[in-house]
Design a protein around this nucleic acid. Sequence first.
DNA 1: GGGAGACATCGACGCTCGTCGATGTCCGGG
DNA 2: CCCGGACATCGACGAGCGTCGATGTCTCCC
Lengths: 112, 112
Amino acid sequence: MSDPAACCTPLTGTAMSAERAEEVAGLLKALADPVRLRLVSLIAGSDTGEACVCDLNAAFDLTQATISHHLKVLHTAGLLDREKRGVWVYYAVRREALAAVAGLFDAAAVPA
Amino acid sequence: MSDPAACCTPLTGTAMSAERAEEVAGLLKALADPVRLRLVSLIAGSDTGEACVCDLNAAFDLTQATISHHLKVLHTAGLLDREKRGVWVYYAVRREALAAVAGLFDAAAVPA
DNA sequence: GGGAGACATCGACGCTCGTCGATGTCCGGG
DNA sequence: CCCGGACATCGACGAGCGTCGATGTCTCCC
């Protein structure tokens, strides 16, 4: 019987815009796959910070075409850098992109 | 001319396991949708830290069934808490879950 | 107790996504 | 020059996902 009219305050805080949501969703969609997650982990965990496709291929039970597709998705999303050296192609993680994603959830994790 | 035989060192660092990758991918898959992203943002941005379904419904041009479905996905993923109070249902964000996601990318963003 | 409102569930449709085999492109070596 | 290897692209198939209308369940009030 306290406030029968309103069920609650109708969204006071400024929320994420629809355009921004589409943007972030694109980034997360690129990462929301077990294979791509392991790819990023493999490349980021390498001592040189980069890895060539032939080694990444050997780490999975998947076709070379599939791995190439996943790398293209990550590259298109801006999460991986691509560099061709001779016959081989090397991919490196963009630390700034990962840090940006971490910052998104850090901001949302604080109470106010 | 340094090492013509090997294209690069065959994955030295310890990478994310396949099981762990599936787990994390499930979490990110729940967040990789513009509507769910805005839902989390709306609830997290509320001054009380929670929101009832009727208000969330009003914030989108979507059916009540669709919003309910998205809320269920977020709740099942462990990102939202659900509490029924009288006729209305309130959802609240699990800050720890968001912080865990942020921690994942913080760890991957450091060079070594 | 009957009715109205809030929210969840169900079944179905269209679309996107992950995976594959086959083929194309580029580079280096004999 | 031509062949072989590394990687990308293409076309197709099956599975999963977002959305909807319709229906079910629960609670409160008259």
